[in-house]
Design a protein around this nucleic acid. Structure first.
Lengths: 341, 341
DNA sequence: TTGAAAGCGTTACCAG
DNA sequence: CTGGTAACGCTTTCAA
């Protein structure tokens, strides 16, 4: 059994309250007593029971994070930034993965509510925000990241997904691609935003967006690479096949490149490929991958800052939306040298 | 304010105890009452306060995980497996990162002890187990992963690090390398074990282990790639330079390959390179990387199973050590075709 | 089948 | 400066 304040108090012949005050640096305790308490605390290696404290103060110093997949470097980075920032302020982070399954996610959220978290950060796998309405009412303040819901007014930190689509598609046009395909993402805000950026850019630049050039995977965040390869194989059967591909994420792009090589074609000469995410190993790939940087680290940092502001404010502040701008990173997979007509 | 059992009880005109019993499926409650309670619970979306429950039952249903770096796919995988397995049994996982800093780690551990976790899983950054002695006494049962301490009898799940060194070094010898270098890891059990496997294999095969061929990075788990490149550059200045390199981990190997190319040499013709970890993108690299598979998923799974057994046993069971066997995965970075003399 | 009382480890409030 | 008392939300024990 761990040491409690009661043990300390009994041993020293003082009251529990006195011990409690010393531990929280209350002013009104005599130096002598304070020292005696502190010494014994150290000797017995006493650590306050945070659950008990939380029960009376109403604060648990626990923050929850729900992501689809910790193996995905994007979410791992978020988890890392968030964890680092919160730890510094004395909060613990508890992490759940939803495996991109809305049902699992909802059950996780319920479990987390039982913990009476002080705040919640979610990259939701849900396609509609019904589950969040409940949280909004009963649960702690929360921050959405990466994915959001247009119909739900909430705190949100993410990237400008339309800009991602615009940057990628414009770049492919700039390097001379004529038939640009899109391996699209899921039916959530990033998937839809990037698709919109792609479509808008094509029409603005007076290029046709043939529906057969837009390809949807069954599952995206898990097994992206396999989906990318599969979808690309289909696209290459078309006549004419695309000469440029914008992929929803980098793993899909890696899969696509794999399929292109498999078909005996070259990247970028026959087909230029660009992804999104700018993973840290993109530059070391067989064909170094052009990508759209998603400012992952910054998203984590901002999410952490926003979460801390929620934690520290007395009232529930107005929802805040932070949209970061993506950046084009050009590597070999789209470097076609002089414009080929 | 969240709904409490008191609210339910008052509303229904029953006692709190009755509500409590219904929620925990106690037998001795009338069907009528049970139904009324259950209905209201659902209507009010009541969720039990786990902290309060934990205070009286002594179990928090919280498990802690401490890893050096969540961005490292190895630890991300562990976190994912562990989280998945524990969640299924009703436990939450709280994750801390130590950034490979023993001081930070110790502070984290103390904070976690305050949470009165039911169990703890640690990939420790400490070089001596002093901090763990305290936990052993006061804290919850714990499982070490990846790194362990010879002087500390504890639960442990990891790979046979000597075998990693043996497999990698033997393979380099088998493909005809004559001067085999080792970019070694840190001063913990994996670093030392792999070094030992390397040295033992060389002497067994009657090859000399020149000290200058053994290179130590300053920091390993962070910035492995940069260290790998730096160390390799030094090695290439030697006369004669090595013609085979066994790297502590895959990112270091990627950095090493980078440096080799930079020097105008070829992989594997001039220098064969093998890493360890078998990261999921190894096959898509510029030079697909030979590696030693570390059974990451299995480690996570076994760690989860061992942790659950600790959680479910009444008494503290005898320490258990689980050592998994690594496997050689050959790719282009060591494929030299017919033996070159 | 139900509930009253005690207690888990802590803090808030107020009296001495 | 110090400490008694009540309370946080829940479970356990035992009596009705």
């Amino acid at each position: 059994m761990p040491v409690t304040m009661k043990d300390i108090a009994r041993e020293l012949g003082v009251s529990i309250v006195t011990v409690s005050k010393v531990l929280r640096n209350h002013e009104d305790i005599g130096d002598e007593t304070r020292k005696r308490v502190l010494d014994l605390v150290k000797e017995l290696k006493y650590t306050p029971n945070l659950a008990a404290r939380g029960l009376v103060t109403g604060r648990t110093y626990l923050v929850g994070l729900v992501v689809p997949d910790l193996l995905h470097p994007f979410f791992a980075q978020i988890a890392k930034s968030l964890s680092g920032a919160l730890l510094k302020k004395g909060y613990c982070l508890t992490i759940s993965t939803s495996e991109d399954d809305p049902d699992l996610e909802e059950r996780e959220l319920e479990r987390l509510l039982g913990r009476r978290l002080d705040a919640l950060v979610i990259a939701s796998s849900c396609t509609n925000p019904a589950a969040f309405e409940d949280i909004l009412k009963q649960g702690p303040p929360f921050v959405l990241i990466d994915r959001h819901f247009v119909s739900l007014d909430s705190n949100y930190v993410g990237i400008d997904d339309e800009a991602v689509g615009v940057l990628a598609t414009s770049h492919l046009i700039d390097v001379g691609c004529k038939r640009i395909a899109h391996l699209r993402g899921p039916e959530n805000s990033p998937g839809q935003g990037r698709l919109k950026g792609y479509l808008d850019t094509l029409s603005k630049r007076r290029m046709s967006a043939s529906p057969q050039y837009i390809s949807s995977p069954r599952r995206v965040d898990v097994q992206s690479r396999e989906s990318g390869a599969d979808l690309m194989r289909q696209l290459l059967k078309l006549d004419p096949p695309p000469d440029g591909v914008f992929c929803y994420n980098d793993p899909m792009a890696i899969g696509a490149i794999h399929a292109i090589h498999e078909a005996g074609l070259r990247v970028p000469e026959d087909v230029a490929v660009i992804g999104s995410g700018n993973l840290h190993y993109d530059s070391e790939l067989r064909v170094p991958l052009s990508s759209i940087d998603q400012q992952t680290e910054l998203i984590g940092e901002r999410a952490a800052r926003l979460t801390l502001s929620l934690l520290e404010s007395k009232v529930r502040p107005r929802s805040k939306t932070i949209i970061l701008q993506p950046e084009l990173v050009v590597r070999a997979s789209t470097e076609r040298g002089p414009q080929t007509k």
